[in-house]
Amino acid sequence: MLKAENLTKKFGNHTALDQLNLEIKKGEVFCLLGSNGAGKSTTINIFLGFIPASSGHAFIDGQEVTLNNHATRDLVAYIPEVVNLYATLSGMENLEFFSGLSGYNYSKEELSHFMETAGLQRSAIHKRVSSYSKGMRQKVGIAIALVKKAKALFLDEPTSGLDPHASSEFSQIIMNLSEQGVSTLMATHDLLMAKNLGTRIGIMHQGALKHNLLSDEVSHADLTRLYIDIVKQHI
């Protein structure tokens, strides 16, 4: 579903992404670990078509992103670290807006259902987003991904700052989506979450993918050691 071929991004003399190769199959959750500046967000930004690659190619469902940016956007949903919504609109109005932008025209009842599936309480749906907590905003972000019926989900530090309960709820939803065949590329610092949620785990450093591991084949302790070793080598 998602494929990167020798993906490279340079900002002036700085190489943010260096010959990245990875493949994420249908229903897989690929967790990208790495310290700040490792190239996780750059990878996501290239897949989303926000920035062009300096060389190499990114594919979504077989379509090259740069060449088919409009078509590939239909297939993806994006949830950033902080889901920034329009504060003067309600959660429902935000969802209605983004579903409309995705070309869907759902009834209010259907949209409410998506909100509830994403874990947002019905009583909060019509309140202005300015009164929402970070967790509630993340849920609206998930609802947006649900209404889009996205085939691929890009998550950039999605659980950062969430309380354990909200974080666990979030993980459950991603797993449900994975079971429905949605492929996920998630950038995170959270090793435990990567181990529990990911099908595969990548460790990035200075733009390069240092490890590409199957989650089932690595223990949490090994993962922690590998991660620390990589980071230490370059301190």
């Binding site: 989303l48 078509g49 926000f50 409009h70 956007r73 239909d74 993806v76 949903a77 994006y78 950033p80 902080v82 889901v83 920034n84 919504l85 329009y86 504060a87 983004f98 932008l101 995705s102 070309g103 972000g141 947006i144």
Partner: peptide
């Protein structure tokens, strides 16, 4: 400033 540009640009709208 609000960070909504990414949500907007990841939609179908050009």
């Amino acid at each position: 400033e609000n960070g909504t540009i990414k949500m907007l640009l990841s939609s179908k709208a050009n």
